[in-house]
Design a protein around this nucleic acid. Structure first.
Lengths: 339, 339
DNA sequence: TTGTAAGCGTTATCAT
DNA sequence: ATGATAACGCTTACAA
């Protein structure tokens, strides 16, 4: 049959011919140089440079069933925090010659499933997901994937997948404890349900648990606006408009810093003093959070650390090692001016 | 020779066997379903679901020399702006079934070259780069790559690669014109050379050109601190410490909003009024820029639009079309409070 | 240290 | 509409 080489790119065979060795020796030159004789090595090096040869990784992966690719699904790439995890994961992997395949789910379990299905086709060395909540289809794919799966940004005892993250419930509890210690009496929680962010719901549950344990009544608020900044402002309005019989909250815990920021700017526009009239507390420690005036008190998740740790785990697995199934990385409570 | 199937994953042949057709028919089921008979289609569908079959894309790409992957190199993933381009590129491509391979260069031409070399091994459908400045090695790789290359975030008449972006020199000129129209007399430019960001240098050149055209003297300042916020504060100090014989600048144009933000916060700490005592102007329109008080006047680059346009170009190319070689996307000057 | 042969899972080509 | 066969470019297994 006629050859059907699509590109004019040189192959291993071309390099071998030019260097006067066999193809397998050129293959070894790339994968185990120490097993190639010094003068063969020199001739191969020359040929590679002359031809501008780049190994075809798809072919290599097919032959070895071992692709140097890692796939990650994040809720969104351009968000203020997941990008840090991506960055550190990418850095840790590229140092070891791995490539990163990326997709975003926008907090949609269906989109996540589509991305996972597509990724599996590349037989990646590992699959990194965000959160531990998936569709049944995703679960099925993962189970039959035959490749390591790492769930990040979350932590709960669970079976197969490796987990690297923290407890969102604990974040809710920690925020409440901080606000209570500061003397705040009526603490509300604002949670933008529009996002479909299950982890945010868990932070809210932690908040509720902590308040109930103190004998206080949780006050969850769910604004409707899809834009988080606008939703924050909306929530502030809802809380200020409470029935007069019911005393207004003196502190508000937000599911993320975008919501908190929207509320903070709205509060300032309305002439409210923060934190004297109302204290505001966030989650995420976004880039703007320390630049607001007053600066935003918040909880910083270990975004970079998660990516770094995931990269280490993957390299450990590739080396035949066995990383710990659950890695708990601490969040950091950052006390600033707003609460 | 003994089989060496590494994974237990089902293959096309397994599906074919179960569906009672040949492998090539199953291949058609995925790539051209309309060319498969209705009842064969039904049996194949059943078999695919029963086996949880996912096609091996590396094998398909090898056979067809046509991988549904696009590779992109950005200076950094977690930066405030490139993430938007990544996000829109990823969205545009994943809708068409393409995957995104990602690497970051940290403004290092060598790191870019390494990433390009690794990417080329995947024979991607297209290679998307940031800026038009590359190492000679990268140029060589690109030339012999045989795949479309798109340079983004930059624009200058040039040969092979497609370009999608804007003129950084023009950004420098536009900023100057705005500040001059506002009546500022002595306009400095702050540029953190530590970043190795060639595009920022071009913005500085545009600034210099514009001032010279007006018969004024450019006043470029290059702080040393590697941290951009700190560098902005440092630059402010340098400018305030000018010789008394030389009047202090009344406006400062920063190469990016991080620098401007650092200067803004430092100015407020020093009791300076912005913009009355000193006007500050940035570039990038980062997430915090409209939240500062005073809010930061800046120029917004078409980050999302670039990614979207790149995705369109790639799909056009894949369909055999010929996208325009140079696409100019406008920046938007955003007049806020700081200048 | 180096080579030969077979096979990885898919698609292009040609045939029916 | 469906199939047989030969590639695609590389690596494993075994041999020398």
């Amino acid at each position: 049959m006629r050859r059907r080489r699509a590109t004019a790119r040189p192959t291993l065979a071309d390099v071998a011919l030019q260097a006067g060795v066999s193809a397998i020796t050129v293959s070894r030159f790339f994968n185990a140089p120490e097993r190639v004789g010094a003068d063969a090595r020199g001739r191969i090096q020359t040929a590679v440079e002359a031809l501008n040869y780049v190994p075809n990784l798809a072919a290599g992966g097919l032959a070895s069933a071992h692709n140097k690719v890692v796939a990650m699904v994040v809720p969104n790439i351009s968000g203020p925090i997941f990008a840090h995890t991506l960055q550190s994961l990418s850095d840790g992997l590229s140092a070891a010659g791995y490539q990163l395949l990326l997709a975003s789910s926008y907090f949609s379990l269906d989109a996540e499933e589509r991305a996972v299905r597509a990724f599996l086709g590349w037989q990646p060395a590992a699959l990194v997901l965000t959160s531990r909540h998936h569709s049944p289809g995703t679960e099925r794919l993962i189970d039959s994937a035959g490749i390591p799966v790492i769930e990040t940004w979350d932590l709960a005892q669970r079976r197969t997948p490796l987990q690297i993250g923290f407890s969102h419930r604990q974040v809710g509890r920690d925020g409440v404890r901080y606000l209570v210690e500061r003397g705040y009496q009526r603490i509300a929680f604002v949670h933008n349900s529009a996002a479909g962010d299950i982890s945010a719901k868990e932070r809210c549950e932690g908040y509720s648990d902590a308040l109930k344990a103190l004998g206080r009544t949780p006050l969850p608020v769910t604004p409707k606006d899809p834009d988080p900044m606008a939703a924050g402002a909306e929530a502030l309005g809802m809380l200020r408009a409470q029935m007069p019989a019911m005393p207004r909250p003196d502190a508000v815990f937000f599911a993320n810093d975008n919501l908190a920021c929207g509320a903070l700017l709205a509060a300032l526009r309305q002439g409210l003093r923060v934190p004297q009239d109302i204290a505001l507390f966030g989650f995420g420690d976004y880039a703007f959070s320390d630049k607001l005036m007053p600066s935003l008190s918040t909880i910083r998740p270990p975004a970079r650390e998660i990516g770094h740790c995931a990269a280490q785990h993957i390299l450990t697995l590739a080396a035949g090692g066995q990383p710990p199934p659950h890695t708990s990385l601490p969040c950091e409570l950052i006390a600033r001016e707003s609460a």
